[in-house]
Design a protein around this nucleic acid. Structure first.
Length: 937
RNA sequence: GCUGAAGUGGUGGAAUUGGUAGACACGUUGGACUUAAAAUCCAAUGGCCAUUAGGCCGUACGGGUUCAAGUCCCGUCUUCAGUACCA
């Protein structure tokens, strides 16, 4: 019987499902190990061969850990809320839940074919009400929490209320909005309920506020900072503008320092940690207050260089800054307004595209320098960003190149405050070489000392203090969409109220269209049944809204990252309808030991889930501070597109070798029409699309050779390779081995189906090793020394490879082992049985088949990993290369029992050595046991 | 600009961490089997010189340390990824 992978794979996939082979136990004497993949968004296109790469790697590791005796949790689910299903719904009118279900069914079918060891009993779907009930619950918990800086953790909002009632907010050290008023206990107790609610909103970890947001008109929704790439939306690439809107936000900024510190304790790549560090963007400096001449208002700035305060010759505000309208003098009004209008019109992208153009307008107003009391002109300019720091800078042209360029452009004076530095050409920003001059009490001081002194003096004046600033902004949490989690929120007198957990989940209402309303409200504004009855605790028809007991519900939905920020905990106890997961399950499974997924989530999902984990820990729902202990980013598998060359204006296609003789245009065609030597199947192409039906082809040596281009795998390039096809043609085990064999896990690499024959024929050879003709032929004979050596070499290498996640080299190791054992005609059970276990994480189906044929009744999945024994690798005789002055001349066999001196004596006595030395005395003989002998003449 | 990663045959990539560079595989060439093709099997395959034996040069480039460097150190160049008017 030959290797019939289709039958074998179907058989074992059925066996695993029926026997629930990979079910994880929630309490076990075994040590736990949690291996998680970033769960997929089930898109309509299905999986291509790139998607399973990370899943295969995590599956190998999960299976390996089971062999090593761990209780392994390896679940899978779907991130099933999101834009594509909604856009499809807008086009077709089909409810997104239907599309989503269909797509999930397709994904599941494809995943099952590859033979993953997922515990499907724990499947989660973020769009299932049983799941998003708890997403809504976490939202409510965040709403009911505030961040205490003294204890450095989130606390119950009721505790804040009692603090307010007894001592006001003067002593409360909390993370809150900038413009939070100061009040006493007496004030507090006089406030109306609504006033109290307004104040609480400034403290809650999720809050409703009017903020400057990224509005994407094309998508009709706001976006968080991480959803914008290069000034355009990540999805679709549409322009994004800044706009003030009332939105839900997450006070992630409260966790900035802990998110930064936590990075030191987790095993992630440096690149990823670095991009989170950059995103958090900590900078240490000072906040400085400038009085505005003739106004009550003051301007707050943040600077990393308080030591250069005497170099301030002007100030610049962001055009969007609140004070601009108030301080602009009548004479400058029209000019300022024209400028603000012009900048507001520009998209983020345009603004980023021309950073070189210097623009700005003088407001006519002056601030007062805190020390010299000199007037400082106040300008506005779009090089100052509203979203960073306070949206205002003290400009020090001598020490900052942007301020310098601005000053030169508008002819603003530049004061030099650096000892012995020429600033006639450019600003001087080297902190380390700075000696301050021309600066009153800072003269002669270094950067460090001057900074300290300046802050001290500012504090004395009460016009500044040391301050740490973070680039990390609070994350906008509302989306003007349909297909997302509804907020468990209704409004009484404009103030948001939470719905208690007992009445959750709040399910999505039916709408007749998935578009915004004519008045610009989100799609939920179309729902007829979307009001909250506080007496009966249920959703009722909008007609009944009376604002005494029945109130309107929130119209926004949550963003895509809501459900994915905590799903790792749901897998621990996926069926629980009383809690998001039981305390026992949470305590046992703790957090993810190994997480595998793409690096594109560096500043989105991976940051938000760390934030929610820290929050849940603060509120004592979980015991861990970080969600993912170790993280590996798998590289993308790229497609290799096929290109034909059409002679311009004709229907004639020329082969690659002749294309330079014509004026041609490139067309991408389906990669399945190309054979392993880049030759085109012309008849196939003619049938593929009508435009090729009557085409002419100019060949070379009777062949049409296509051009190739490596690029992202995508339907529109026709370069998608479907894993189902590979499974049908070569088998899932071959697909798994080949995906690993392609190259290092973390690297991007092109898919090339041609190379798959290598691993495919390896599996055939492996099959033959266990079979003699048609019969399964494993004998109980004693293994030879060579056989044992091959086995133990393989155990050692494979174990090391898996521990280091270099799965690619393991595949080669298997190939070598099988070649050697075939040559040695090894049929010994004592070799082939452990070999089956070694291969089982990589090629589980064939391994199970061998295991059964070897007479075992259960699954190979729980078999113990073979133990490596050094003694089998030790040889008695070794070939030593003998070198003279670094050049290898010959090799010589020597016993390994010899000591260093004996080896040296034997080599010197050897005839060839004597010839080489030709009577000369060597200076030195270097013996590296088992490796090389070097004689230095 | 800044940060991170990396430069090894025609290609993907190995190299036990300083010890015979190019494992393994693809591709290519030649051969066997076949009427033929596919499949399969065998052999060769870094470059140059040599009939052979063998020799010389080779891990982006230039230096250095060492008996010994792909690996360590200094400098240069290139590529990829992330990020960017961050005060």
């Amino acid at each position: 019987m030959s290797y019939d992978f289709n039958t074998i794979e179907a058989k074992w996939q059925k066996y695993w499902a029926e026997n629930k082979t990979f079910r994880a136990e929630d309490n076990s004497a075994k040590e736990k190990y949690y291996v998680l993949d970033m769960f997929p968004y089930p898109s309509g296109a299905g999986l291509h061969v790139g998607h399973p790469l990370g899943y295969i790697a995590s599956d190998i590791y999960a299976r390996y850990k089971r062999h090593k005796g761990f209780n392994v949790l390896h679940p899978q689910g779907y991130d099933s809320f999101g834009l594509p299903a909604e856009q499809y719904a807008i086009q077709t009118g089909q409810h997104p839940s239907i599309t989503t279900k269909e797509n999930i069914a397709r994904y599941r079918e494809q995943l099952d074919k590859i033979g993953f060891s997922f515990d499907w009993d724990r499947e989660v779907r973020t769009s299932n009400p049983e799941y998003f009930k708890w997403t809504q619950w976490i939202f409510v918990e965040l709403f009911n929490s505030w961040y205490d800086k003294n204890q450095d953790k989130a606390r119950d909002i009721n505790e804040l209320e009692s603090l307010f009632a007894t001592e006001g907010n003067t002593k409360v050290n909390a993370v809150c909005d900038e413009e939070t008023p100061v009040f006493t206990a007496e004030d507090w107790n006089k406030y109306t309920t609504k006033e109290k609610q307004q104040i609480f909103l400034k403290y809650r970890l999720t809050y409703l506020a009017e903020t400057e947001v990224n509005w994407c008109p094309k998508l009709g929704t706001v976006l968080a900072n991480d959803e914008i790439v290069n000034g355009v939306s990540e999805r679709g690439g549409y322009p994004v503008i800044r706009k003030k809107m009332t939105q839900w936000s997450m006070r992630i900024s409260a966790y900035a320092e802990r998110l930064l510190q936590g990075l030191d304790r987790i095993d992630w790549t440096d690149a990823l940690k670095e991009s989170q560090r950059n995103w958090i963007g900590k900078s240490v400096g000072a906040g400085v207050t400038f009085n505005v001449k003739g106004h009550e208002e003051v301007i707050e700035v943040f600077t990393t260089r308080p030591d250069t305060i005497f170099g301030v010759t002007f100030m610049t505000l962001a055009p969007e800054h609140d004070l601009v309208q108030k301080i602009t003098t009548p004479g400058q009004k029209s000019e300022i307004e024209a400028y603000i209008e012009a900048t507001a019109k520009r998209s983020e992208r345009e603004r980023m595209a021309d950073v070189k153009t210097i623009s700005g307008v003088f407001t006519g107003a002056y601030a007062e320098h805190p020390f010299t009391k000199e007037p400082v002109p106040i300008w506005i300019g779009d090089y100052v960003l509203a979203g960073y720091g306070t949206g205002a800078v003290m400009a020090v042209p001598c020490g900052d190149q942007r301020d310098y360029d601005f000053a030169k452009h508008f002819d603003i004076p530049i004061t030099n405050i650096f000892e012995g530095i020429d600033i006639s050409q450019e600003a001087f920003a080297d902190k380390e070489k700075t000696i301050i001059a021309n600066s009153d009490f800072l003269n002669g001081l270094s950067y460090k000392k001057a900074t300290k002194t300046a802050i001290y003096e500012l504090e004395k004046l009460e016009q500044g203090a040391g301050k740490t600033n973070y680039r990390l902004r609070d994350a906008v949490f509302s989306r003007q969409r349909y297909w997302g989690e509804p907020f468990p929120v209704y409004y009484v007198d404009g103030m948001p109220q939470m719905i208690e957990v007992a009445h959750l989940p709040i399910q999505l209402p039916e709408v007749e269209k998935y578009l915004p309303t004519e008045t610009g409200e989100p799609p939920l504004g179309r729902a007829d049944v979307w009001a909250w009855d506080t007496e009966n605790n249920k959703v009722v028809s909008n007609d009944q809204i009376n604002n005494t007991s029945i109130f309107p519900l929130e119209l926004n939905t949550m963003p895509g990252w809501a459900g994915s920020s905590w799903y790792l905990f749901r897998y621990m106890d996926a069926g629980n309808d009383k809690e998001f997961a039981s305390a026992e399950a949470l305590q046992y499974w703790e957090n993810v030991d190994l997480y595998i997924g793409g690096s594109e989530h560096a500043t989105g999902h991976l940051l938000y889930s760390r934030f929610w984990t820290k929050f849940l820990k603060d509120r004592s729902y979980i015991g861990v501070d970080e969600p993912f202990k170790k993280l590996i980013n798998q590289g993308m598998i790229l497609g290799t597109s096929a290109i034909v060359y059409r002679v311009s204006g004709t229907n004639t296609y020329v082969t690659k070798g002749l294309k330079d003789q014509h004026d041609t245009e490139e067309l991408r065609i389906d990669v399945s029409l190309i054979n392993n030597s880049d030759e085109l199947d012309i008849e196939g192409l003619k049938k593929w699309q009508p435009q090729f039906k009557d085409a002419d082809f100019e060949l070379e040596e009777g062949k049409y050779i296509v051009g190739r281009e490596v690029e992202k795998m995508s339907k529109r390039w026709f370069n998608v390779v479907n894993p189902d096809d590979i499974c049908n043609d070569y088998g899932a085990d071959t697909l798994r081995l080949y995906e690993m064999f392609l190259g290092p896990l973390e690297q991007a690499k092109p898919w090339n189906t041609a190379g798959i024959t290598g691993v495919s024929s390896f599996l055939k050879k492996l099959w033959k090793l266990y079979h003699n003709g048609d019969d399964f032929a494993v004998t109980d004979t004693e293994p030879t020394k060579e056989d044992l050596k091959t086995l133990h070499k393989t155990i050692k290498k494979v174990e090391e490879d898996i521990e280091n996640f270099s799965f690619n080299t393991s595949v080669s190791t298997f190939m070598i082992a099988v070649n050697e054992l075939t040559a040695q005609k090894c049929t010994a059970r004592a070799i082939l049985e452990p070999l089956a276990i070694l291969i089982s994480p990589y090629a589980p189906h064939i391994a199970e088949e061998f295991w059964q044929r070897l007479g075992h009744s259960g699954s190979i999945a729980t078999a113990a990993f073979p133990v490596f024994e050094e003694k089998h690798l030790v040889e008695s005789v070794k070939k030593y290369p003998i070198s003279f002055n670094g050049k290898t001349r010959f090799t010589m066999e020597l016993s390994l029992d010899l000591s260093k001196d004996e080896i040296e004596a034997a080599v010197m006595a050897h005839e060839k050595t004597k010839q080489q030395l030709a009577g000369r005395e060597p200076k030195k003989v270097i013996v590296v046991p088992g490796k090389i002998i070097n004689i230095v003449g």
